[in-house]
Design a protein around this nucleic acid. Structure first.
Lengths: 353, 353
DNA sequence: CTGTTAGCGCATTCAC
DNA sequence: GTGAATGCGCTAACAG
């Protein structure tokens, strides 16, 4: 399955190498057949459990031969013949963008495995659109699950034309050119904001991590703005990084109660933890002086004091409906009806706000 | 590339489906050839940049046709014919075991891409040995990079017989049946311990996270023990989890100076952060009363006060030598000579110890 | 009922 | 510049 290595070239190319040289043993179904004294067709029937009748005796002989030779069918040949695979390809997410990414992939693998599908992650985190689709299509996966921002209409069309049976997109703007898991990463920000407003907060601030991964934090900031604006509550935007130097000047300004918001939404729990540490050092108490709400439910958030109030998604539940939806798509059905429900964020109210 | 979905069965099976049905368009190299008015051989030569001479004019015609049809070569057919691919397969690591896992994979992808290789992660995190090798072999990758604990001798043999050109193992006990990246995850623990001893600490404790992922922490605990024992320094083993309830009783006991170690190694920075929080709440000051050293260089560790002293690996450097070694192995050379040097852990001395 | 023969799928590459 | 063989496994059609 050669796939394009260098990004940004016409098409892939195989590294120079000695052609289909026989190599060592590399057992094929023909070897198994020879070993068992039957034809390749019989081997195939036995190993695949087709409905074709085979005597128990030959069956055992074939199985034994396969075991002896440690035969592993060549997925390439198989996929080529079948014109389809049971691979679900997920281009790797831009790291740290989504806090629970790793947990999600772990759950997703379990759920897919239970549905006879294999999860494969493509290491490239940046290539998108047609160029990305090109790389993904080469593997001829049964399904591709990718963010809308990378799954452009042209990309989706290319994948479909390449024979990918199910292209499932995920992300905020629901699109019409492919089934979409309408997971809005900003939903946690909205939920957190509504919570703070309901608690009577009237002056908000929002920490916005800067850097190359700022897309999501910015979306969340806008969501906070929007919800707060509906109540006529102002939101101070605080651009920062996860470092002491970055937070210090802000906290310093907030020493003055007149300059101080009464609540802060921080985009991720580590930022909340950092902020609270700096506030404490400045003599500002959480939640008495300022309420702080994060998101992502980081384990440290629950363990430290004050424990972080956080808005988060139910990661395993989302993995389940995504896997189920992919399976259904492959079987010609619609998305899992439980999708919307599983995507609703929830709030874990602890001590910080 | 159908791969076994259910774990623990004889061999894989394709989900029932309508055979190699023609499907929609699914452009093949034959389509491109037709479109450009040339033979498939020519298409192949042009698209792969072989040294076979092709007139500039036809070259352009072929490229244009490929673009028009959004042609993506079928990786299965290609691999089948070529008997080799440019895929490097990495079975996904048991999550959170290695703190920098995600960073590592990101760097590794970049380094591999620069060497014309594509990184693919296999979603299954648990299957190992022959069973795992079976699943990995089906993809016929050019190389597999996996922990020694999963890459048993039988697994390595199976992979080799299946035509995987480079099997690179990683992990502590260097083995002789396959090239190994002797990355010892316990090395950071040794380094941290030596640092604490050099600072005059004479009574150590070691936090050992429990749970299903306890293998690594236990190895590290043993490393701490070993180094400390050489100096006649005792080590208290503290089994715990990353939660308030888990740490509280320990800290409570340490309120009594007579019961208290003078330094703690915590296996990961989040544990150090948690511990310091609880110690502070108990009126025990770090590093005055107890020194604390973590590992993994978590960003929060640098940002909080006291900043966490941590022992860590140079993740991007390791990714570089691993990628380089894989490339060299594929080219018939030996491991990158810079390997050992890149694997050395280093200490970031900050405030906590 | 049991097993076999034969052709296909797609891209690569040798030889004319 | 092209024809044709090739790699590996699946499966429809067929023969005992």
């Amino acid at each position: 399955m050669p796939v394009d290595g260098r990004r940004g070239e016409e098409l892939s190319r195989l590294p120079a190498a000695p052609g289909p040289g026989p190599g060592p043993s590399r057992p094929t179904s023909a070897d198994v057949a020879r070993h068992a004294g039957v034809s390749r067709a019989t081997v195939s029937h036995v190993l695949n459990g087709t409905d074709h009748p085979v005597s128990e005796q030959t069956r055992q002989r074939v199985l034994a031969a396969a075991r002896d030779l440690q035969y592993a069918p060549n997925a390439s040949a198989r996929a080529l013949r079948a014109g389809r695979s049971n691979i679900v390809l997920v281009p790797m997410l831009r790291s740290a963008t989504v806090p629970g990414a790793d947990r999600f992939l772990e759950s997703l693998d379990r759920e897919l495995a239970a549905r006879d599908l294999v999860l494969l992650m493509h290491g490239d985190r940046t290539t998108s659109g047609v160029r990305g689709a090109q790389a993904w299509a080469e593997l001829r996966p049964a399904a591709v699950y990718v963010n809308v921002s990378r799954g452009t209409p042209a990309a989706v069309e290319l994948l479909r034309r390449a024979g990918v049976q199910a292209v499932l997109l995920t992300g905020a703007p629901r699109v019409d050119y492919a089934p979409t898991v309408p997971l809005d990463p900003a939903a946690v920000a909205r939920l957190a904001t509504r919570h703070l407003l309901a608690r009577g907060c009237r002056r908000l601030a929002c920490l916005v991590p800067s850097g190359p991964l700022a897309e999501l934090p910015t979306q969340r900031y806008e969501a906070v703005m929007e919800v707060a604006a509906a109540d006529g509550v102002p939101v101070e935007r605080v651009d920062c990084e996860l470092s002491s130097d970055s937070i210090a000047p802000v906290v310093d300004r907030w020493r003055d109660p007149a300059q101080r918001p009464d609540a802060v939404y921080t985009n991720s729990d580590p930022f909340a933890i950092l902020l609270i540490d700096k506030l404490r050092a400045a003599g500002i108490e959480v939640p008495r002086d300022i309420a702080v709400v994060g998101s992502g439910d980081h384990p440290l958030g629950a363990a430290l004091r004050p424990a972080i109030t956080t808005a988060t998604f139910d990661v395993p539940a989302i993995a389940r409906v995504v896997a189920s939806s992919i399976r259904r798509l492959l079987d010609g059905a619609d998305l899992d009806p439980g999708l919307e429900a599983a995507l609703r964020p929830h709030l874990i109210v602890r001590e910080s706000g």
